[in-house]
Amino acid sequence: MGLGGGDVMNIAVTGDDLVVVRDVGKTFSEAGGLVFGRAQPSVRAVDGASFEVKRGETLALVGESGCGKSTLGRLLLRLIDASEGEIAIDGVDILRLSSNDMRQMRARVQMIFQDPYGSLSPRRSVAKIIAEPLEIFGLVQSRKQRRDRVAELMIQVGLSPTFMDRYPRQFSGGQRQRIGIARAIAVDPQFIVADEPVSALDVSVQAQIVNLMQDLQKSRGFSYLFIAHDLSVVRHIADRVAVMYLGRIVEIGPKRRIYDFPSHPYTQALLSAVPEPDPETRKSRIILKGDVPSPANDPTGCSFHTRCPIAQPICRAERPPLLETASGHLAACHFAKPHPIPL
């Protein structure tokens, strides 16, 4: 493929890390220009994101709408071009690849989308949708080979191959998500970005899809970046969790640590906000005040200080760096402690 060899990496890649992200940022700005193009205010969607995804691991990226988690996921696949920073996948600096080389790279990185209704082309049969990546990368030669391969993939994601000539509209949301998963795993990728893959599904279907995704990971060994808007599903699939707020990662660490000893007040609020399906243990919730500020006017200092229940003057003045509170557990809070902050 001609990748990797010539590219000089500034990033030290250890054998364990499949994806290495360093100081990645994205500013959206609509350039004005030629005959009445209007200039828009620029929006800082992602700021200084740094993390790794290990081989075979699932890193969950959690945050509320507008926090930049989907943008970050797309930056990793270069569906959106990063404004700055470095992203290495399996030692290849993807931000420096030509668009042609990047397309070849897509055989190794795939995506599962949130919207099971919109992410499948409505006028193409299931077989055509699943076979598309196979054809692009020349993995099937004949028509028969293609159909056999599609049938195998459909069985693997729990769909009957008899439906391969049907159209997406006939399938339920869960079934469509299975089709999307079959398409993503068709080329045997190493890394899959799953953008809220179950948030549009019913509870019982959610469980089926999450389990399917785990089974496939177990048998094929790829890594996930699992994007989610709350922490409940994540508990069942993630190895590590990163929490985002207003474009920045505010806490990242092993799953156990994040759930048992959340260090950042935002993570604590997120955990406490999930309504627990158990009336016996009605808990006292941390209710955050107000709304997430618009990324267009990012607060000074710690971006969470406008809603933070424990904010101090320093939080307004100084942005806290992401610092280690325990081994592998980092939080960006002036008052981060290894144990929950009494509220």
């Binding site: 019982s204 959610q206 469980a207 389990n211 409940s232 599903v233 508990r235 069942h236 999930v274 627990e276």
Partner: peptide, 15 residues
């Protein structure tokens, strides 16, 4: 089948 914050079990029950 509801994912729970307190659940240590990694596998969700599925209908």
């Amino acid at each position: 089948s509801i994912p729970r914050l307190k659940d240590e079990n990694t596998r969700l029950y599925q209908i």
